[in-house]
Structures are given as structure tokens and as C-alpha cells.
Simulated scan of single mutants.
Amino acid sequence: MNGEEDNIPIPSLVDQPQENQEAAGDGESTDQPNREDYGKTLYGCEHYRRRCKLRTPCCNQVFTCRHCHNEAMSVLSNPKERHELVRQDVKQVICAVCNIEQEVSGLCSNCGVKFGEYFCHICRFYDDDTTKKQFHCHDCGICRVGGRENYFHCPKCGSCYSIELRDNHSCVENSMKNHCPICYEFLFDSIKGTTIMKCGHTMHMDCYSEMISQSQYRCPICSKSVFNMSRTWERLDLEIEATAMPEEYRYEVSILCNDCNNTGKALFHIFGHKCRHCNSYNTRMITTGENHQ
């Protein structure tokens, strides 16, 4: 999305529909609220409803939001010119209603409209859609959605998680300050939903669902099982018991268990090798059987 500006007149009472003029004419007390709410949810982009645009200090262009900026800059033909906007660096905004450029604030200094029903001065973040229940997390340093009462900040993982995960997840230091192992988008400030696997590593919810639909049950980072596989291991027990290997393949191999990290021995079988410590078949061979080809 480009940063072109429109020559929109400054809103006044005569610019409003007839019914709004009548409501505003009853007294001065109704004038200010109407003026602040003028154009609410009518401006913005595919990412946010807001009544201002940002002057990006990195390239001195105008975009509705940082996502619009980052998408436009990521496709530049010259890789050296590609960059992302640091939201806290924004100093100037342009009112989408009256087109006046000014310092970052919650209200337009010229026409008096709110730039966003939700406004965070730290993040330079505006949004008219407050149903998202936005809140600023000082530990994360950015705004989150979903309601402050529904989340807590995990200092070790370095991010906000659902309160359902308080004392109920495996902590991995700065696990959210990494890229999704599937699509490789940075997770910490991604607008997509994320999930935490049993091992503590994180990825996008959509990427996780796609991975499971492809019958991949292991974490792409550490290879641990992402959910309880005990029933699958029981079925493998029955299949291995019913499928004897030829005499020349009846030997032991050394294995490493991805689930419990223990090493051990297991009888070679084409269906899998069972860990004697945790009964998992999520293992890998680390040596072949001695004296066998």
C-alpha cells in the first residue's frame, strides 16, 4: 500500500449528515464527542481501522500501518533497500480526515478527531476496533490483543501467554523471540495466533495444524513428540510382534530417544525401535548393528 494522501476537507458540523447535525445542535456537550468520533472505523487498511497514517522515519514515506510499510519494503528489487519499520521511531502522523501532518498524539490537533479508539503512545499504535481488547505489556514492550485479564507474561519465555498456561507449560528461554519453524515469520510480534508445544517451542497455530494434517507428529526444532503418542506406540508394538524379521536382521542397534533424550539398545526392525526408558518409538539410530551389513 502506498502513502498517497487525499485532499479531504476538515470535518465540521455542516459536513455531517442531517440527523447528526440535529443531535449536535442540542447543546455544546454533544459537539465534542461527535467530533472525536467522526469517521470512526471508516478509515484504515486491511490490517487496522484507524484515522491516521504514519510518516515512516526510515524512508520518509507515508503508510497506514507498519505492516503496510513492511510488506511494501520486503518486495523491493534491491535487497539492500529492504527494511522494517521500528514502531517506536515514528514521530509524525497524518490525519486521514483533514490531511494535516503533526506530532504523534491521540487526537488531531486540527480537526479534533481521535486517530484511534485505542491508542498506545509507546507503540505509536492506533485501532478503532476495540473488540480485540488491546493492551500494552510493558515486559514485552509491545501491544497485545485478547484482554489483559486473559494473559500473563512469562519472563523466561519472554512473552505473554494465556493464563491457562500459567505453571502449565515447558519454559524455553526467549522461545517467542524466534522464527516460526514452518513459515519462518518472526513470532514475537506476529499478528497470527501462536501455540506452545509440549516441548516448549512455539509456532503459528495455522502452521501447527498444517503440520499435523501432514502426519508430522514431531517438533521441527527438537524432534520431541508434540502430543501423547502412547496409543500409536501400542499399535506399533502389535505390528512389530506380528512381523518377525528374517534371521540375518535380528541384531541390536544403538538408538537415541528424541522424547526422553536417553540412549540405549533396541532390536532392529523396519517399523521402528522402541526406547526402553519411556516406551517411545520416536527414536533414531546412532550406530548400526556391529558386524552386520
Rank of each mutant, 00 (worst) to 15 (best):
L85S: 11
V104H: 01
C98T: 09
P79L: 06
V86T: 11
R87A: 14
E81F: 08
N110K: 15
C111Y: 09
R87E: 11
Q102M: 15
K114V: 01
K80R: 13
K114Q: 01
I94H: 09
Q88K: 15
V86H: 10
N99Q: 14
G106S: 13
E81T: 07
V86F: 05
K114H: 03
C108T: 09
C111I: 10
Q92S: 14
V86I: 14
V93L: 12
F115L: 04
C95D: 00
F115D: 01
S109H: 09
V104N: 01
Q88R: 15
G106N: 13
I94P: 06
S105D: 14
S105R: 14
A96L: 12
C111P: 11
V104C: 03
C108Y: 08
L76I: 05
E84M: 06
N99M: 09
E103Y: 11
V90T: 06
Q88L: 13
S74Y: 04
V75D: 01
G112P: 07
N110G: 05
G116A: 02
K80G: 03
G116W: 02
G112Q: 04
D89S: 15
E101Q: 14
L107S: 04
L76S: 01
P79T: 03
Q102N: 11
R82D: 00
I100Q: 00
K114C: 01
S105A: 15
V93H: 02
G112I: 05
Q88D: 10
E84R: 06
V97K: 15
N99A: 13
Q92I: 15
S109R: 15
L76N: 02
V75W: 00
E103K: 14
E84W: 07
V104I: 13
G112M: 03
S109D: 02
Q102S: 12
S77P: 03
R82Q: 11
A96Q: 09
D89R: 13
C98I: 10
A96G: 11
S109E: 09
G112C: 08
V113L: 04
I94G: 05
S109L: 12
A96D: 05
A96W: 08
A96F: 11
E103A: 11
K80D: 08
N99C: 14
C111S: 06
V90C: 05
Q102R: 12
S105Y: 01
G116N: 01
V104E: 00
K91A: 10
C108V: 08
E103V: 10
V93S: 00
V93W: 04
A96T: 05
N110V: 10
N78Q: 10
S109I: 10
V75M: 06
L107F: 14
L107C: 03
H83A: 04
N99E: 06
P79N: 06
V93P: 01
I100P: 00
S77I: 06
A96N: 05
G116K: 02
K80N: 10
P79F: 05
E84N: 14
F115E: 00
N99R: 15
R87V: 09
I94T: 12
V86D: 11
E101T: 15
K114Y: 06
R82P: 05
S109N: 11
C111L: 07
N110D: 07
V90M: 03
G116Q: 01
K80H: 10
S74A: 10
V104Y: 00
F115Q: 00
E81W: 11
H83G: 08
H83E: 07
E103W: 05
N99Y: 08
V104T: 09
N110H: 13
